[in-house]
Design a protein around this nucleic acid. Structure first.
Lengths: 135, 135
DNA sequence: TTACATAGTGTTATATTATAACAAATTTTA
DNA sequence: TAAAATTTGTTATAATATAACACTATGTAA
């Protein structure tokens, strides 16, 4: 009975890459990931990007578009990345996923005047975090 | 009396690139721009990226982060890109800048529980536009 | 259990997006 | 007009991402 690639389980590469992102305190870039996992046998960009694509698709991680970097999902309410919001410090680069039910509901219910029905949104807030303000 | 680089005026390259983006009905990518303006003497990527950086900085254009592409600003309320929102069709790639005072106010007033004060936000909505729904 | 379909892997090469660094010209400010 | 700031032109290269192909592993269903 070998490893099974079922509903919620991750493949070997996906698991390696998810673990790395999940334990990171900051967003990771694809090539940073690549360099970090080369000792584990993941040697080429496509292996990383494929795992990243799948992890994004299944909502285990999110891409921070303004940084081309990836963070683990910390929000059970984002429903496979249909409603994502982040706060980003422009000084230390820290990224925090925002879990705010009101915000999420407000935006999920928002409808464009021009009649487009939205399936998904991504919101990125920028500022200086508490920590950096002190310095 | 030569050309003047005053407050609101654009330099030669900036103007050429702004005009191109401004008359485009869809977001333009940096290298698409580069190829389009080569006959006007703009031959290398840094010339394009520098103009783009400046135009973004002054709020004449916005970058659509999820597409690495640029659109002209259509919203006098976004105040030099401090409060940007877009609707993006996942089928035809059309991008529309959203000018919604309520939305803008709501988000500008939003404050993170963790005490971070936001200076700026960017919001991208995704869906299928009216036109594409019909097809 | 076999066979078929689907998903994942490994690999090489290449495409796409973006910046570094430096010399020269133009424009603004004082 | 001299100094400062901005813009330009240029070459080279860095960083991000995908195409294509051969192969292996897993899941599904007769």
């Amino acid at each position: 009975m070998g490893k099974m690639y079922k509903e919620n389980s991750l493949s070997k590469n996906q698991q390696i890459i998810f673990d790395l992102i999940n334990k990171s305190s900051e967003p990771l870039k694809a090539y940073t990931i690549l360099f970090s996992v080369q000792k584990k046998g993941i040697k080429a960009p496509p292996q990383v990007y494929r795992a990243l694509d799948k992890l994004v698709e299944t909502g285990k991680i999110h891409k921070i578009e303004s940084k081309n970097a990836f963070v683990a999902c910390r929000n059970s309410n984002c429903e496979i990345s249909k409603a994502t919001a982040f706060s980003i410090c422009e000084s230390c680069e820290m990224v925090d996923e925002i879990s705010d039910t009101k915000l999420s509901k407000y935006l999920s219910g928002f409808n464009h005047k021009k009649g487009m029905k939205f399936k998904r949104f991504n919101l990125e807030f920028f500022g200086i975090c508490k920590k950096c303000k002190k310095d």
